[in-house]
Every structure is written in structure tokens, then in C-alpha cells.
């Protein structure tokens, strides 16, 4: 098995990489916080969160704050594990 196998395709985009980085150090983040930090448009961010949700790396929670709908994201156990593997692989590749 070569090192490149640990490079996860799911994280192979700046926005998805950013979403995971944020969720690794925060218990959760809502849509607006992600949008603000990543400087992404609504549609763009939504499609990337959907992709991460599909592979079950993040958990999506929809709720209401007052009357406003609010979407909260957090990293799943699987997502955290895979992201750590991904970081390790990146570091090894750079080290070479």
C-alpha cells in the first residue's frame, strides 16, 4: 500500500478541507460561521457540506433558533478519524 492511498479524495478541495479543519477544533459550527470563515457562497458551501454528509464524515442538525432555521454541523467519529489519517498522509508526503 503506497502513501498516496491514505490521501482521501473526499478532502481534495479547499472548501471541504476547510470545513473539516474547522469542525476538528470546534464542537460544532453553523452554516453562517462556515460561510464567513471560508468565504464561500451559499450554494457552493451547501454542495460541499452535502458531499461530506453523504460519506458520513459530518453530522447535520437542523433546528430553529426562535423562528429562524439554523443548520449546525459537527464532525462524526469516522470523519475525525479519516481527517487525521489524511493529515498524516499529507505530512509524510511533504517530508519526502
Amino acid at each position: 500500500m503506497s502513501l498516496i492511498d491514505n490521501i482521501n479524495k473526499a478532502f481534495d478541495h479547499r472548501i471541504r478541507l476547510g470545513i473539516m479543519s474547522i469542525l476538528m477544533v470546534n464542537d460544532y459550527a453553523d452554516f453562517n460561521m462556515l460561510k464567513e470563515l471560508l468565504g464561500a457562497t451559499d450554494g457552493n458551501l451547501a454542495s460541499h457540506t452535502k458531499a461530506l454528509e453523504k460519506v458520513e464524515y459530518i453530522v447535520v442538525e437542523k433546528q430553529f433558533i426562535g423562528r429562524k432555521p439554523n443548520t449546525r454541523y459537527s464532525a462524526s467519529k469516522l470523519g475525525k478519524m479519516e481527517f487525521k489519517k489524511h493529515i498524516n498522509a499529507l505530512e509524510k508526503l511533504i517530508g519526502k
Binding site: L17, S21, M24, V25, L37, L90
Partner: peptide, 14 residues
């Protein structure tokens, strides 16, 4: 670049 983006996002978000 990926690694520095990860570090940057981790510190900026927390």
C-alpha cells in the same frame, strides 16, 4: 498548501 490551509482554518475558527 493544504497543510497550511488546515492550520490557518483551525486557528482562525477557534
Amino acid at each position: 498548501e493544504d497543510i497550511s490551509e488546515i492550520k490557518n482554518m483551525m486557528s482562525r475558527s477557534s
